[in-house]
Simulated assay, not measured.
Amino acid sequence: MRFPENIFDLVGGEDAIWSDDHSGPETLRVTGPNGEFFIKQGPLAVTEHGRLRWLKRWANVPDVVAFEGNVLVLAEAGWRSLDRKPPPEAGTIMGRALRALHAIPVEECPFDERLDVKLDRAAERVRAGLVDRAAVAARHAGLTPEQVYDKLLLERPADEDPVVTHGDFTPANVLASYSGEAIFVDLGELGVADRYMDLAVALLHLAEPAAADFLAAYGLDEVDEAKLAYYRSLHSLL
C-alpha cells in the first residue's frame, strides 16, 4: 500500500510498526508514537467511510481519524473482539446489538443492499473468478459457484423483510466492552436488506449455546430455515 504523506506522518511515519490485519487483505494495523490505528485502502474503504459516518448517529462505530482519496484511517477502539477468546455472553451481546441495529428506521438508511444488489454483486464475483471454488464445493455438496448462483435465482424468496443490516455480521466484526456494549466494525456492506442476511451469517459462526443465546437476545422465537439456508448460500458467493 502507498499512502498520502500526511497520513503516513499522522500515524507515526517511520517510527510506527506496520503489520497485516487479518480482517481483510486491504487493512493494516499501525502502532506508533501517535497511537494505534487501522488503515484501509481501496474501493471498499471509500464505501465503508460513508457508512461509518451515517451509522455513527445510531450506534457505536470506530472513530474516523482521517480519510483522503481511497485511504481510511480508523482509531483502535480498545474493546475486545468477540472472535478472540469470546466471553460466555458473546451470543447475548451479538443478539442485543443486532436487534438494536435492525430497529433503526429503514427509511433513514440511504444504502441499498437488497437482493437485487447482492445477486448482481454475486454474479460479478462469480464471473471474475473471485469466489473460492473449493470452499463453495465443500459447503454445497460439490456444486460450482455458477450452479449455486443459478439455484439462488431459482429459489429466490418471494418477499424480503427489510431492515438496516450489517452485511457481514460475524463475531470478528463485533467488539464488546466489559459492560456488554458493542461496537460494529467492517461496515462496507451495511445497508437495507432482509434481516436473514445478518441472522444467517451470525449463525454460521456461533455454536451452541451461544447460538441459542443469540436468538433469545435478538428476540426470534422461530427461525425460517428456508430463508436461513438461502442467505447462507448467498453469503458463500459474496
Results as ranks from 00 to 15, higher is better:
F8H: 08
D9Y: 09
V11M: 02
G12Q: 04
D15M: 14
A16W: 01
W18H: 07
S19M: 14
D20V: 15
D21C: 14
T27D: 02
L28G: 01
T31E: 09
N34T: 15
E36D: 08
E36A: 12
F37H: 00
I39E: 04
Q41R: 14
Q41C: 06
G42Q: 07
L44A: 12
L44H: 08
H49V: 02
R51E: 03
W54N: 07
L55S: 03
K56R: 15
P62Q: 08
P62T: 07
D63N: 11
V64R: 06
A66D: 13
E68A: 13
E68S: 14
E68N: 07
L72A: 13
V73M: 11
K85A: 12
G91D: 08
G91Y: 06
G91V: 10
T92A: 14
R96K: 13
A100E: 13
A100H: 10
L101P: 09
L101K: 08
P105L: 00
V106G: 12
K118L: 15
K118E: 14
D120V: 08
A123H: 11
V126Q: 03
R127W: 03
A128M: 12
G129E: 09
A135P: 00
A135V: 01
A135H: 09
A141M: 00
T144F: 13
P145K: 14
K151C: 14
L153W: 09
L154P: 00
L154W: 01
R156F: 10
R156G: 09
A158S: 09
D159V: 15
V163T: 05
H166Y: 02
G167C: 05
F169H: 06
T170I: 10
A172T: 07
A172W: 05
N173Q: 11
N173W: 02
A176K: 09
Y178K: 13
S179R: 15
A182M: 12
F184H: 00
L187W: 03
L187H: 03
G188V: 03
E189G: 02
E189Y: 04
L190K: 03
G191E: 04
A193K: 04
M197S: 03
M197W: 02
D198Q: 15
L204I: 15
L206S: 04
E208K: 01
E208F: 03
P209Q: 08
A212Q: 10
D213C: 06
G219Y: 03
L220C: 15
D221L: 15
E222I: 04
E222Y: 00
V223M: 14
V223Y: 04
D224R: 04
E225H: 07
E225P: 00
L228W: 09
R232D: 08
S233R: 13
H235I: 08
S236T: 06
L237E: 05
L238N: 06
L238E: 03
L238T: 04
